[in-house]
């Protein structure tokens, strides 16, 4: 599966540029910076102030959306979607003034049988084959150790595999699309080639979107 992305990187550098230029304009009293941007600017400037050193605080993740029930992956394409809520907590603010990260979390992936890896795509148009949209490819969900992690023997609870991947770049790309719906996210899973006679029955506990 090609992971090549044709699109430009999301404007993380641009956001930093805006923050810096905003600080300059703010000093001149020209730019009406938003409240959070002002806060970020304040924290940036105070962090660089040697007289007022600030403690480095790790960002806090905030869940902004998730599937409401477990679902199964089989042969072929499986798609799930969920509502994305606007962040109301720590995701609104990055203490260190950096751009936010968008994380996709896939939890409790379990199976009694060996399974192939799955390619994960975001917001593939309904009815279309995700493999025709390499620009929407997010990551490959590896199933190494899936059966072992699904069994509650061997000293662990059999919670299955959990994945957390940074999809900031892809999310930035998606948000620039014309038909972008900010309140919903579709996640598609595509199996790679696998023995036709072997069953594929993988249960996914939850897919969630987090901001930090």
């Amino acid at each position: 599966m090609s992971t090549h992305k044709h699109w430009a990187k999301p404007p993380i550098w641009l956001s930093q540029l805006i923050l810096v230029s905003g600080a300059l304009f703010e000093g001149c009293g020209l730019a009406p910076a938003g409240p959070v941007v002002q806060k970020e600017l304040h924290m940036q400037s105070s962090a660089s102030d040697p007289k007022k050193p600030q403690k480095s605080r790790p960002p806090i993740r905030e869940t902004v959306g998730a599937t409401s029930a477990p679902f199964e992956l089989g042969r072929g394409i499986a798609t799930t979607s969920f509502e994305v809520h606007a962040p109301t907590g720590p995701a609104l603010l990055r203490a260190d003034g950096e751009a936010r990260h968008v994380l996709l979390r896939i939890e409790n992936v379990r199976s009694d049988y060996l399974a192939p890896p799955f390619d994960v795509y975001l917001n593939v148009p309904p009815g279309e084959d995700p493999r025709r949209h390499p620009e929407l490819f997010a990551f490959t969900l590896s199933t190494f150790g899936l059966v072992e992690m699904s069994a509650s023997t061997g000293g662990h609870a059999g919670n299955g595999l959990n994945f957390l991947r940074d999809v900031t770049e892809l999310y930035g790309f998606l948000s620039a699309a014309k038909d972008w719906d900010p309140k919903a996210l579709r996640v598609s899973f595509v199996t790679s080639s696998w023995d036709e006679s072997a069953p594929i029955k993988v249960q996914v506990g939850r897919v969630s979107l987090m901001i930090e």
């Binding site: 409240p35 924290m43 809520h85 609104l92 900010p182 309140k183």
Partner: peptide, 12 residues
């Protein structure tokens, strides 16, 4: 998107 949109002021 709504995710990147800043809402009300926050004090951390």
């Amino acid at each position: 998107t709504s995710i990147f949109t800043q809402a009300g002021p926050l004090r951390a």
